[in-house]
């Protein structure tokens, strides 16, 4: 049933992407930009959901992985000369996205390893620090432009790229979680010790989650870099990590579709609040507080039956 849904999603997303890309020049550039950001945020939130929501490892370093992907891909495309042939462009950009993802995944591995020893708040703080370290390092690397930023990145990101990636991420995550294999992730999240006693290596699960999650954050960063064409370290501060975490929490940790919806909502919301200018962040924060009070398990999570809630309570 869910497989069916995710398969349809993939096709729908790619078709929509292609269809819209035909009319790219007709779309109001502002809406176009918001749509691209929605896509990128869905990728970020869904990949973080794998780490936070499914494997249960509270990570606050997602912007760091995004930065790694953004800078890696920018370096790649700046080294390549773009021919007029669109085929060649496609190949070069694919390579840049892939490398952005792979290098971010390597960083994911590096963060995944301390996560094996740390839990809860400690892990959150460590990953937060890790993200900041990446930012500070970039800030001090001259060949990446330092604090001034990296300019002149070719504008290669478009609808098709973004929404194909969105579709792939959603499909992969949902396939994983709905497979017997993927139940090991949920088991580690639910009760690490009990998971170990049925032969699940929590080490393996955590590392896979971090590496895969970081890979897609890297790809999202690469897509972002090739859309805005100018990146600087400040764009990838812990505030960005928080933003992604909030999307996952509001959507409902471990809810694939909830997180997609909340990524959409939380991208549009700040845009709509532009009219109230200086109160924008106040209204935004208030809304988050209200949502958390009224729907603590996430905005889009089906409320459990009374019986299940009681069972959950007695467990705590």
């Amino acid at each position: 049933m869910r497989l069916h849904k995710s398969g349809l999603m993939l096709i729908a997303a790619i078709v929509t992407g292609f269809a819209i890309s035909r009319f790219e020049h007709l779309i109001n550039p502002y809406y176009y930009q918001v749509l691209i950001y929605i896509g990128i945020n869905i990728i970020l939130a869904s990949s973080l959901n794998l780490i936070n929501g499914f494997a249960g490892q509270f990570s606050l370093g997602h912007a760091g992985f995004m930065a790694v992907g953004a800078y890696t891909s920018a370096v790649v495309t700046s080294q390549l000369h773009f021919a007029s042939s669109s085929m060649l462009n496609t190949a070069a950009f694919s390579l840049a996205l892939l490398l952005g993802g792979i290098v971010a995944a390597i960083f994911g591995l590096l963060v995944g390893i301390p996560s094996l020893r740390l839990k809860g708040d400690y892990l959150a703080i460590t990953t937060l620090g890790f993200g900041e370290i990446i930012r500070v390092i970039v800030q001090n690397l001259d060949f990446l432009g330092g604090a001034r930023g990296f300019t002149g990145i070719p504008k290669l990101t478009n609808f098709v790229w973004v929404f194909s990636t969105v579709a792939i991420v959603i499909l992969l995550v949902s396939n994983l979680i709905n497979s017997t294999y993927g139940k090991s992730f949920l088991a580690v999240r639910d009760d690490e010790l009990a998971a170990e006693t049925i032969g699940i290596s929590s080490t393996r699960v955590k590392v896979i989650a971090f590496v895969t999650g970081a890979f897609f954050a890297g790809v999202a960063g690469a897509l972002y870099a090739h859309f805005v064409t100018y990146i600087n370290p400040a764009q990838f501060s812990f505030l960005k990590s928080f933003e992604i975490v909030v999307m996952v929490i509001i959507g409902g940790m471990g809810s694939i579709f909830g997180v997609i919806l909340s990524a959409i909502l939380l991208t549009i919301l700040p845009e709509m609040l532009r009219s109230v200018a200086q109160y924008r962040m106040v209204v935004y924060s208030l809304l988050l507080i209200v949502i958390m009070i009224t729907r603590p398990r996430g905005l889009f999570v089906r409320t459990r039956t009374a019986k299940q809630s009681v069972a959950l309570k007695t467990l705590r």
């Binding site: 017997t180 294999y181 139940k183 090991s184 949920l186 088991a187 639910d190 009990a194 032969g199």
Partner: peptide, 21 residues
């Protein structure tokens, strides 16, 4: 008892099979 709080009975058994697939 330490069951997995988010899982159905079926999924709980699936988790035990996740190593053996």
């Amino acid at each position: 008892i330490r069951l997995f709080p988010s899982m159905t009975v079926y999924e709980t058994v699936q988790a035990a099979y996740s190593k053996g697939v």
